[in-house]
Simulated assay, not measured.
Amino acid sequence: MKEDFTAAKGWLERIGELPIAHPVAVMNVCGGHERSLTQLGLRGVLPPNVKLISGPGCPVCVCPEEDLADAIALALTGDVTLVAFGDMLRVPINAAKGEVRSLAEARAKGADIRPISAPQEAVALAASNPARPVVFFAAGFETTTAPVAAMLAQGVPENLSVLLAARLTWPAVDMLLASGDAALDALIAPGHVAAVMGASEWGFIPERYHLPVAVAGFSANSLLAALYSVLRQKLAGKPFLDNCYAELVAPEGNLRAQALLAEVMEVTDANWRGIGVVPRSGFALRGEWKRFDARARFEFSALPRRRAGEMPPGCDCAAVVLGKKQPDQCRLYGTACTPQNPVGPCMVSDEGACHIWWQGGTRAAA
């Protein structure tokens, strides 16, 4: 069903009436928000003093390079079937010249690698091939990690293992704001993550950093309502947490999903590609589910790599993820790095800002 833009037009008019005399930088944390904002062309219709900045909401972009390298090595050298969400197959690692750079390239060399769209596909594949090890390379944020926890809690075949590269969203935002060089005036929090973890999780932003924040969905109406809210908060000098996606997001979130996460996984310090270790931002299997950890079941050989753990030379994906550069300010954007030949992870996923901007028609570096 097509979106009714009548309400959105009203929000745009209200935003246009606000007395915004100075530039206001608003970060949309979620990659899905960036996609909606770009596809809807909202940057082009907002007041010139309102600057929208993409944030760290792309799990493909921040997946540690070493986890990708381990997945590639296991698929190439182990007698296993490796499954992963589709976007992960094309993410490049910093391999030496002539070496395999991605899961897609490993697949082309004969590795048994298959894209899936839901955890239950991994379960079905393992159940139908009981004599063959199946490894689920599970990268993602809370929205996709909760179903992985549910999958394990419900019971899985003994030949299924999980190579977990899951992350919590809010700690990266907390680290960015705590650094003091974020140059942000307000934030729009991710609706799908808040639907799982609760809108209240984002209350630390006004409480600790005195910045406006609003949870938003993915429609023009919800995004513009959230933008109007944070702009009004900024002008009034009274920041608070607003929920502009109340039809799907409760203050406490999905308690059953949170209980499954807490039952199956524990929160750990975790590395983010190009950013470094973010405290208490990752998940690891706990208790009886540790036996399904691929790292406990398999030996991992090291691939020949350069600049291990870093972004490729010249790639500004880390700066884009942290909102310090816009995609077209990257030195490689639209030249060496395109969706057909991605150098950095932000050009791969449909939640990666560089890929979104390219698809939206921005084809050259600024």
Results as ranks from 00 to 15, higher is better:
Leu76Thr: 05
Leu164Ile: 03
Lys324Val: 05
Thr268Leu: 00
Val26Asn: 02
Met1Leu: 13
Ala150Pro: 03
Phe141Asp: 08
Glu142Arg: 09
Gln154Asp: 13
Tyr333Ala: 11
Pro312Ser: 11
Trp272Tyr: 10
Ile72Glu: 04
Pro119Trp: 09
Pro251Tyr: 09
Glu201Trp: 02
Gly361Tyr: 10
Leu261Cys: 08
Ala178Phe: 02
Glu288Ala: 14
Arg43Trp: 12
Ala259Asn: 04
Val60Ile: 11
Ala8Asn: 10
Arg363Gln: 10
Val196Asn: 09
Ile53Pro: 01
Ser349Tyr: 11
Arg101Met: 11
Asp242Tyr: 02
Ala365Cys: 13
Leu285Ile: 03
Asn271Gly: 00
Pro304Gly: 15
Glu288Met: 04
Arg132Asn: 04
Ala69Gly: 15
Ala246Gln: 12
Ser200Pro: 01
Phe240Ala: 14
Lys290Asp: 01
Arg35Lys: 13
Met1Tyr: 12
Met151Ile: 08
Gln233Met: 09
Pro59Val: 04
Ala270Tyr: 06
Gly86Gln: 08
Asn159Thr: 07
Pro342Gln: 15
Ala178Gln: 13
Pro47His: 14
Asn28Trp: 00
Pro64Thr: 04
Gly140Ala: 05
Met1Arg: 14
Ala25Asp: 05
Leu164Gly: 03
Gly360Ala: 14
Gly44Gln: 15
Pro279Ile: 06
Cys61Arg: 05
Ser54Arg: 02
Phe204Met: 10
Arg208Tyr: 00
